[in-house]
Amino acid sequence: MKIQMIGMDHSLAPVEIRERFSFTTAGAEAAMKTVCATPGVEGCILLSTCNRTELWVSAKGPVALPGILCGLKGVDPADYREYLVCREEGEAVAYLFALASGLRSMILGEDQILAQVKDALSRAREAQCCGGTLEVLFRHAVTGAKRVKSQLLLSTANASAAELAIDRMWKEGYDFTGKRCLVIGNGEMGKRSASALLERGAQVTVTVRQYRSGRVEVLPGCSRIDYGQRYQCLPQCDVVVSATSSPNVTIRVEELKACGLGHDVLFLDFAVPRDIDPEAAQLPHVTLYNIDQFSVPPSQELERQVRRAEELLCQEQARFEAWEACRDLIPRVDALGTYLAGEVDFRIRDVVKELVKPGRDVRDNAGAEALRQCLSAMEQVTRDG
């Protein structure tokens, strides 16, 4: 099977382009099933995060991936050619191993991408879309990433984009102490944002949605309001962070204008698609940043660790390539096993017949002589075997 991928990430496309190619969980499942219906495609996996969208395919031959990915979004591939990259075979395999380890992330060495790769594999498996080749490839990539995480301490590991952005602003002189902060979103990114703000002395309120399953918990130290009350809360805020996985805008420019902000408010949008209407940046008292405006340059020590990580990944990649090279032998081994099983069955049939008579004697008479004959026959079979 030929391994191919197409994708865009933070290094190729700005957030306004990436958000057009983002997929919800349900949308990703439907998209994978559509791709798997393409003639010649064995399996596919769709990875969609804040910083990247990637479509992975295993097929009997080349597949027109730009047309397929853009077709899923109803756009013309020619309009997005500069933002897309295609990789195949060895190049694609090496890229996936580095990606799962955080070596291709905006925040070098971050951990979230490993969980996202695992989740993408799980979704494809549940949708019965991943196929055998990609199943094994992604499992090897996850194993390689775990080796890197367990043997190396990457200096920016375990930090999310939200945490590093808040940390950078603090280092540049923004004092969060006592600031009234609203965090929109109580998922993983929202919780990391709230935690980072709490550590710097902010007063944090988190929006939550009400679900039938019961009360939604927030981090200790945070206040909570219903998501529907967010606009009423804005005039009292100094900082607003929005970090949801929703495809819908959480802060609209018209509603924000109606709030009548009377002081400067810092808005941080860490979502893709973006949560906050970009036009909000034109309003008085609004300073708006998105996820693309924060990056952390790697240190020399981190670069040394990256080289060591690449060595570890090469070892795991070699294991996958060995499996792939031997994959064509599996049908031949299965066929040989079936043949040998038939041969064994044929050859022992006559021996079993010889055992039947003394066995019946044992059953019917249970005498010492019959038992002796039965044991002698069994011993003969053992010696002949």
Rank of each mutant, 00 (worst) to 15 (best):
A115N: 06
K73M: 01
A124S: 15
D79H: 03
Y80W: 06
L96R: 04
C130L: 03
C70T: 05
V93F: 03
R104E: 15
E91W: 02
L121Q: 08
G74T: 14
P77D: 00
Q112Y: 01
G74E: 05
E126Y: 01
K73I: 03
L69E: 08
Y95W: 10
R87Y: 10
V93D: 00
K73P: 01
P77M: 00
D119N: 02
R123P: 03
F97L: 02
L121P: 09
M106C: 07
E82Y: 01
L103Y: 01
R87H: 09
M106L: 12
E88R: 01
E89P: 07
T133W: 08
E126V: 02
D76S: 13
R87L: 11
R123T: 15
R104M: 09
R87W: 04
A124I: 10
A127S: 10
Y95N: 10
L96W: 04
L69G: 09
Q128L: 12
Y83L: 11
E126D: 10
R87S: 07
G74D: 12
E82Q: 12
E88G: 01
C70V: 12
V85Y: 15
A78P: 08
A78T: 07
Y80E: 06
A120C: 13
A100M: 01
K118Q: 00
Q112R: 00
E91D: 13
G71V: 15
L99F: 13
F97Q: 00
Q112S: 02
A127P: 07
R87N: 02
E110M: 03
L69D: 12
Q116P: 06
L72A: 08
K73W: 04
D79P: 13
G71D: 07
A124R: 04
C129N: 02
D119E: 15
R104K: 14
A124K: 05
A100F: 06
Q116M: 08
R104I: 02
R125Y: 09
Y95I: 04
C129R: 04
